[in-house]
Nucleic acid binder design. Structure first.
Lengths: 140, 140
DNA sequence: CTTCATGCAAAACATTTGCAAAAAG
DNA sequence: CTTTTTGCAAATGTTTTGCATGAAG
């Protein structure tokens, strides 16, 4: 067992999730990819793990989201995307390629949060701020 | 022809869209609802317009999005939503009920825009800012 | 007239469900 | 041993496609 796998098993345990080979592999892939759709994960895994089906991928991802291990996002190509980073952060999003890139900007988050606190929106209880910067991501 | 319909026809023409009864009705419904899914529009219309099918609703909505008359959004129940307000604005979104409410806050948009201008994100060409405030929308 | 939009049925696609078998703790 | 997860196949729901007919300009 590699140290990464050991770490993943501990993360699962600390989120009250039973450790199964499927869960371990899927979490490893998510760590590698950062953002991915269920099908991307399935394609990535199925060659080494030929008993797995998409249904299991969805099952596992759902359990992760429920436990707060992943966040779920929706993209304009009509697919769910999952995100390993669960702290509040922004995204660069390219509608052309359906690529998400994390954009960390704690000052922006803080600034928006403070602004909203002052605004006191009526009949609304804020739980999360989701800022998406839409545009063209150029490869470097 | 009511004045609203006349106005809708002019809007269509000014966006280089041929005026058809279907397009007129769908745009009227969108103006009334603000945000809606294709199926909501279909349900709203089919009783008065029994030749129309969902395919046509999608067709019409696509042509509107292409012409910049509507914006397309994705919600966490895995459905497209269409939005009549095409200027940059924020949304309150309730994941429980899948309800969107427009939240106009020009100061917030301006503030975020200026912050991002200063940041100069590398390898990224910004075209739109999408701010979604997730939480609980209470009925007033 | 010529081009573009509509209606229809069927296909495609992502996601979910139900249930029996297997694995985890 | 008990509970939860997996694998499978089939179902569901939304969006898209292809093509013939009809309407718009």
């Amino acid at each position: 067992m590699t140290p990464q796998v050991k770490e993943t098993k501990e993360i699962l345990k600390s989120h009250n999730l039973k450790s199964t080979p499927q869960r371990v592999v899927i979490y490893e892939v998510m760590k590698k990819l950062g953002h991915a759709s269920a099908d991307t994960i399935y394609q990535e895994i199925k060659s080494q793990f030929h008993t797995m089906t998409v249904a299991t991928v969805y099952n596992v991802l759902d359990s992760f989201v429920g436990a707060g291990l992943l966040h779920r996002r929706m993209s304009s190509n009509n697919k769910m995307y999952f995100d390993v980073n669960t702290y509040t952060h922004c995204h660069l999003y390219s509608p052309e390629t359906n690529v998400y890139v994390d954009y960390d900007d704690s000052e922006l988050i803080r600034m928006v949060g403070e602004h909203l606190k002052k605004r006191k929106i009526t009949n609304f209880e804020l739980t999360d701020i989701d800022i998406q910067l839409v545009g063209n991501i150029k490869q470097s």
